[in-house]
Nucleic acid binder design. Structure first.
Lengths: 338, 338
DNA sequence: TTGTAAGCGTTATCAT
DNA sequence: ATGATAACGCTTACAA
């Protein structure tokens, strides 16, 4: 049997109330000698208050839920770390949940987290439809929630994301500046807001340069390497494309594979721009030019916003933050010679 | 105010006991009509029992702690996923904790997990000393714990790991078979049991081949890319080394960098073997020959063992499992011409 | 088949 | 400055 506040009280000849007071550092009204006595006994017995019992009363668990598609996607470890570090610094623990982007599991985890009485949730969703149901589940119970990365709805929830449109614009502009005009695009799933926004940036850059938008140059994939590979194969085959903009680095890896298979060199035959700047991608040959998003920061900031909402309680205003993307120039893009 | 078992009871005109019974699916003694009535109301009000309150009584939280050095190390996402999947399938949630291998944080997290009343802990430690303190903290309270990956102590705790000695042997043997005799070794921190075991395998292979062991060929690093890079620089400079065995892939990446800097080609000038077979390393040029460990499986198995211990309660025998490593032949090793 | 009541380990309220 | 006691929301003997 674990040792409880009662044991401390008994051994110190005080009431459990007193013990509770010294544990919670109530400054008011405790004799110095009593405090010391209690503290000593706590130390001696190595007593730790049972946080479950505490939670019952305080309605706080010092726990947050972090729901993401898949930690194996190299984008997420950095993000998770940002969340966990900030949370831990503020005495919170984090439940990690992988949904694989399946709507059913997304909803299940949300429910589960509610059942476990987390103080708040950070959620990277995959399915737009989930968001609607979220409102029912979360909104009326006022459990703080911040949407992370995949599109953000600044009406109903707080959110953190990069400025995806700007990012799409930057990447495309870079290729245009290198005289490319036939720029293939491998997007994420069409319904993802982040994909839409990046594509908007792409169109904007094109329009600015007076180049017509060609739907045939756009292929949707799944943010996986093989998806990028398949899409690249199609793009490289059927069009006189001189550059490809992949909406994440992992898919850009697939482009590398497809190019190698077809005996095309990067960047001589085709320029490639990625997205995310995940670790170790500078090991690629040639090194990948890509869009950097401060993933760790995103995680940290989302945790910060969440904890603010938690501590401020009830009716805080939602807050949506957009981080600045930037272009990392490496070796996979090259001016088009003619 | 969230809705409780009382609300259900009141609305159904039954006692909370009855409600509790139908929630927990006690087969015994509940009238079909009552059950249906209660179920309907639960559905209607979308009631979920408060797991905190439940935990107070049952002494179970359906929660486990997973303590690792750093999720950003590409070895861990796969492992974490294995744990989380298995846990989730059995209605457990997992707290993710990153220690950066700092002994202080390792201990803190263990304590924290105890305070949060997790049902068990999966622990990848970094500091041998931590293990001693673990005994005090964990053993006398019989909180189930399984040691993962970094060395295993089959006396006091359960554990899951690959057969590191065999892995070291396999890698070294492969290089010996290719006629290499001057084989540099970049190990992990010297005190890590997994490093020691891998080195033992290296020695064993050498001995078998009748080649003397040379301590100067062995450099300890930190499992990070830069550590591998530094060590490789030293090794490549001072010795007529023709092959390097790095104790993880990330350090092998560092070897690639160092080799490139010194204008050495892999595998023509130096053969390289890695360890872990992390994702995307086949994107390296040349593709990395490495030791495969079934990381996902390790995670899954550790979760399985942990849950067994949890459900069997009290005095289960500790269980230590060693998985089989295997050599993945790719392009970074080559027969030594002479 | 159903209900009453005790109790889990805390904190919060109100006395003393 | 300290203590008695009622919660918190549930499960579980023990009754009925």
């Amino acid at each position: 049997m674990a040792i409880t506040i009662k044991d401390i009280a008994r051994k110190a000849n005080v009431s459990i109330t007193t013990v509770s007071r010294v544990i919670n550092q109530k400054s008011e009204g405790i004799g110095d000698s009593t405090r010391k006595k209690v503290l000593d006994i706590i130390e001696e017995l190595d007593y730790r208050p049972n946080s479950i019992a505490r939670s019952m009363i305080t309605k706080q668990t010092n726990t947050i839920g972090l729901i993401i598609p898949d930690i194996r996607n190299p984008f997420f470890p950095e993000l998770v770390r940002g969340v966990e570090d900030f949370a831990n610094q503020h005495a919170y623990n984090v439940f990690l949940c992988n949904t694989d982007g399946e709507p059913k599991r997304e909803l299940e985890y949300i429910s589960l987290m509610k059942e476990k009485n987390v103080d708040g949730i950070i959620f990277t969703y995959s399915c737009a439809e989930t968001i609607h149901q979220l409102e029912e589940i979360v909104l009326d119970q006022k459990i703080p929630l911040v949407l992370l990365d995949r599109g953000v709805d600044d009406q109903k929830f707080s959110g953190v994301s990069i400025d995806n449109e700007k990012a799409g614009y930057l990447a495309t502009k870079h290729l245009l500046d290198l005289s490319h005009t036939k720029i293939g695009c491998i997007t994420g799933p069409a319904q993802f807001p982040n994909s839409k926004d990046r594509l908007n940036g792409y169109r904007k850059a094109l329009k600015e340069a007076g180049i017509p938008f060609d739907q045939d140059l756009i292929l949707a994939a799944d943010f996986q390497m093989d998806g990028g590979y398949q899409a690249a194969k199609t793009l490289l085959a059927k069009k006189d494309i001189t550059a490809i903009f992949a909406f994440n680095d992992v898919m850009a890896f697939g482009v590398y594979q497809a190019a190698a298979e077809q005996g095309m060199n990067i960047p001589e035959d085709v320029s490639v721009v990625g997205f995310d700047n995940i670790n170790y991608n500078q090991l690629l040959n040639p090194k990948l030019t890509t869009i950097e998003q401060s993933v760790y920061d995103m995680g940290e900031i989302s945790a910060k916003i969440l904890l603010e909402q938690i501590t401020q309680g009830g009716d805080v205003k939602n807050k949506t933050l957009y981080l600045e993307p930037s272009l990392i120039l490496r070796e996979s893009t090259k001016k088009l010679e003619n």
